[in-house]
Design a protein around this nucleic acid. Structure first.
Lengths: 330, 330
DNA sequence: CTGTTAGCGCTTTCAT
DNA sequence: ATGAAAGCGCTAACAG
């Protein structure tokens, strides 16, 4: 069943059918209804492929993350899909992994002009290698929206969470509460991790306190190990910040094993305000970087760009403490 | 840059270019290399849309879940995407939500023939309403693969986890370990939840034990509340099974608050063997229903169907206990 | 307000 | 082994 069949059955030309399909205004009520009737009779819906061929667009956008199983990635992807669907786009999902070669393969596949735009989720993409791939594979000015990262390329737009400021302000909050022995467990070497670390460091030094940063990994075990080391280095620790919720979960487990009461003796603060925060016992306080809103925004910005409108190259939102039991002393 | 440009530059016809693009055998080495050179010179890759128009397929498959943020959904979706990508397909992601009207909207969008196949993740789709939608919207014989559910429709194929058997065998394991007071906290009213409950009930009665089933919800709070009720009803409880990891997490929290040692006094067992199991303290034992393998399989079966091969209408795998601290007594 | 016609970029007979 | 030409289903000038 194609547009010709409909046209024949309705006794009009295919152009007319196309017109009612696309809500063209220049059409007589009578004709429109006649066509509508046939359309509905056959539950006809036009081929997006044929339309795509002539419009040079499939209204499709690619969502890339290294691994959608990452809890905050899936949360962001969800928000993006919901909004993009509302706006009439289809979302393609790509889990690129961390390997440059695999990432290259994905970009090569994506470079075939099927997509109208691309959304990168996660600062893990912010590597020179990936920037190179982007330059190499992405046809001209296909818009790329980067959640939590940025590249100095003309077609790349960023939504950043101001991790530095978020941590800075939050550390200040705890200093105001009278804490002095505040530590920071940093995870990987992503750009985002560095910004967090600096936020912590700056807040501490600007209040005349000595920062203490412990190397860790973004994993439960990594967080647990780092926490144990932290307490050896600084047994008087009162408050520990972590670069991710996952690492903070490890922290809670480590403290529990050491029989150190949380939050009575040590308070913990994660980052991302993900589902994990409700899972731990006590529930984990965390810096909320508004993944839902970032997802929403990124979808809307992309939509605007695709409509030919302008958009800011960088949008920023500041994380805010979502407080739960792990920092609530009674 | 299109196939005509390449043809002109290489001094051949577009047919020839098409032939080297599609690895046709009937072509002279010399000609092929000449074309290859031009192809590479321009990093040309053919338009999948134009190809889709003539081939009547975009090599795209839709992945539907009610909400990708669900941890076991994202795990399954990940496995599916990885395998389908390897096989050369693109994956479209759809979060349909639970509302029938919203689900209808999604299916209406999907009904436009863009997809070669559809994968449903989660037994939550197994409702009469959704079956109706499938019948109504899905053009003829578009293959539908249903992970963890089934419909008696000619184009629907199922990958099921035999929840009944998994729970049955596991309950028997614990009976063999000497437990007598084994409870079951059931979550929603999905088909899957019912199968689990029956597995538990059958195992208990077949060993002359009295089943005790507590109503709960698939949420942390739901699991916690159900657990408190469970212990009121049966203070001697030794082992509690849950329909989902999420509910079991609530169980761990409730017991911790009640100061009941896990696993020393009460053992807990979740379902899905999801990431949540590592997050709790103690780590949660859980029935592993092999989401990765199910994802892999479902992708492969779909691929086979799309190649025109036959496939079993139902594939089944049995969950197996993944044991962690919450059931390891010392 | 409606129809004719020329593409969109590719695959695929059918000739040669 | 290669090419000419006819579509795939739709949109968009351009006429009328």
């Amino acid at each position: 069943m194609n547009i010709y069949d409909i046209a024949r059955e309705a006794g009009v030309s295919i152009t007319t059918v196309s017109r009612v399909l696309n809500q063209s205004p220049n059409i007589r009520q009578e004709t429109r209804q006649k066509v509508q009737a046939v359309l509905e009779k056959y539950h006809y819906s036009p081929s997006p492929i044929a339309r795509g061929l002539v419009k040079r667009s499939m209204n499709a956008v690619g969502i890339l993350s290294i691994d959608i199983r990452g809890i905050h990635y899936s949360q962001t992807a969800y928000a993006i899909e919901q909004e993009l669907h509302r706006l009439g786009y289809r979302c393609q999902l790509y889990n690129t992994g961390r390997e440059p070669e695999q990432q290259r393969q994905y970009l090569e596949m994506i470079a075939d002009n099927l997509l109208d735009g691309i959304i990168l989720i996660g600062s893990t993409f912010q590597t020179p290698a990936f920037e190179q791939l982007l330059k190499q594979y992405l046809p001209g000015c296909l818009p790329v929206l980067f959640v939590n990262g940025s590249f100095p390329l003309p077609n790349v737009y960023s939504i950043l969470s101001d991790d530095h400021r978020g941590i800075f302000q939050c550390v200040e909050q705890f200093i105001a509460r009278g804490r002095r022995h505040i530590l920071f467990v940093r995870d990987n070497n992503t750009d985002s991790a560095l910004r967090k670390e600096r936020g912590y460091r700056d807040a501490m030094t600007s209040h005349g306190l000595t920062p203490l940063i412990i190397e860790g990994e973004d994993s439960i075990n990594g967080g647990a190990n780092a926490t144990r080391r932290a307490l050896e280095l600084c047994p008087q620790a009162e408050t520990i910040f972590y670069g991710t919720d996952r690492a903070a979960v490890g922290g809670i487990q480590a403290l529990q094993q050491l029989q150190i009461p949380v939050p009575a003796q040590v308070e913990l603060i994660g980052f991302n305000n993900s589902q994990l925060c409700e899972v731990t016992c006590p529930a984990l306080s965390s810096l909320d970087n508004h993944l839902d809103q970032m997802g929403l925004q990124v979808a809307q910005i992309l939509h605007r760009l695709l409509q030919g409108e302008e958009a800011k190259k960088i949008s920023i939102c500041t994380p805010v403490l979502a407080e739960r039991e792990s920092t609530r002393r009674h």
